[in-house]
């Protein structure tokens, strides 16, 4: 939100001339009949995508020459707004003359690019990008009907943002690599969610299988777990993690292990022992509360020499800001 967003209602002004022209005078609107296809020896493909109840529905007609799988001619019918009609028209234009395999490679981004008046200026405003997505989906549907395969087989990846064609793996990767914390960050890095905004969270323009808010939360949770595991591996696998960066449980375990290795054996030789009662973060210090057991309890040195020895070992091995308090 900023200056350019403060006055609404400018959507139509942002259409390219090509979009307006195709809305006013669509070139490929219409249908083919089975008779027309048969008379030319072509295969008629009729593919539907979308629904009027959702505000957008398109039906694509292909006449495919079985000899080379060439789309010899194509038409469409479209229920939708101006950009939906213009996108459908352009999509059909891009299909004509291509083989079915080539046509499947046409994306909504190609359709939008072809609708631009100049290469640098988008043909439609962001909230209208999704209109071209349907034009793309219906091609896949037509191709799947022609080849008798499932539509999903044309999609190599899971696409989260259809408008900008950003995949699930890409989004997870940028979150991890750049330590992204907000959906706005994701949009800034990938353009996912910048257009119709449906993929940001449930309740938007259309229902999606994946939402950026969920992907962000889950990826952050995974990152957190990975970090914990990594820390744990370093702490208990001989690596180095600064004592201050440890969680409280890790700190307790680290202190325990130093006491086990360096302190307890000496005390046990004298018939004594200690146990850790508590470990607390007190701002700049980490305070360790201990209780003497056996011969140690009541020993004169337990509040002087022995205590200093314990504290010094912990300080030397772990962190200089450690303090030890006998209880």
């Amino acid at each position: 939100m900023a200056k350019n967003d403060l006055i609404g209602g400018s959507i139509w002004e942002e259409y390219s001339n090509k979009v307006a022209e195709l809305m006013n005078n669509p070139k490929h609107r219409g249908r083919f009949t089975q008779e027309e296809a048969d008379s030319k020896g072509f295969k008629l493909i009729v593919a539907d995508f979308g629904a009027e109840s959702c505000g957008d529905a398109v039906r694509l007609y292909w006449l495919v020459n079985p000899n080379g799988d060439i789309i010899e001619n194509a038409k469409y019918e479209s229920f939708g707004c101006g950009t939906a009609i213009a996108s459908s028209d352009m999509m059909v234009e891009l299909c004509i003359g291509k083989s079915v395999d080539e046509a499947v490679k046409i994306t909504n981004l190609d359709v939008e690019m072809a609708l631009r008046d100049s290469p640098d200026i988008p043909a439609v405003p962001p909230q209208k990008m999704h209109c071209s997505v349907m034009a793309y989906d219906v091609i896949k549907k037509a191709a799947s009907l022609y080849k008798g395969v499932d539509m999903a087989s044309f999609e190599q990846e899971i696409i989260v943002c259809e408008c900008a064609r950003v995949s699930l793996s890409t989004i997870k990767e940028v979150i991890r690599l750049n330590d992204l914390k907000t959906v706005e960050d994701i949009t800034n890095y990938t353009k996912a969610g910048a257009f119709c905004k449906s993929c940001i969270k449930p309740g938007g323009h259309e229902d999606r299988e994946y939402y950026l808010v969920d992907i962000l939360r889950e990826t952050r949770e995974e990152m957190e777990k990975d970090k914990l595991l990594q820390n744990a591996n370093t702490v208990f696998g001989g690596g180095t993690v600064a004592f201050n960066d440890m969680t409280i449980v890790q700190k307790i375990k680290a202190i325990e292990s130093i006491i086990d290795e360096n302190i307890r054996p000496m005390l046990v030789m004298d018939g004594g022992n200690i146990e850790i009662l508590d470990v607390k973060d007190s701002g700049s210090h980490t305070d360790v509360y201990i209780r003497y057991l056996g011969a140690c309890s009541g020993c004169a040195s337990s509040s002087t020499g022995t205590l200093f020895a314990i504290e010094n070992v912990l300080k030397a091995k772990l962190d200089n800001a450690l303090r030890v308090f006998p209880v």
Binding site: E52, S53, G55, Q127, K197, G203, H205
Partner: peptide, 22 residues
């Protein structure tokens, strides 16, 4: 159709119109 929250027209739905008319 440009609105970010594309719910069917609530009035049309409330009066029991077909979904295709939303």
């Amino acid at each position: 159709c440009a609105s970010e929250d594309l719910e069917a027209n609530p009035v049309l739905m409330a009066v029991g119109a077909d979904k295709e008319l939303a």
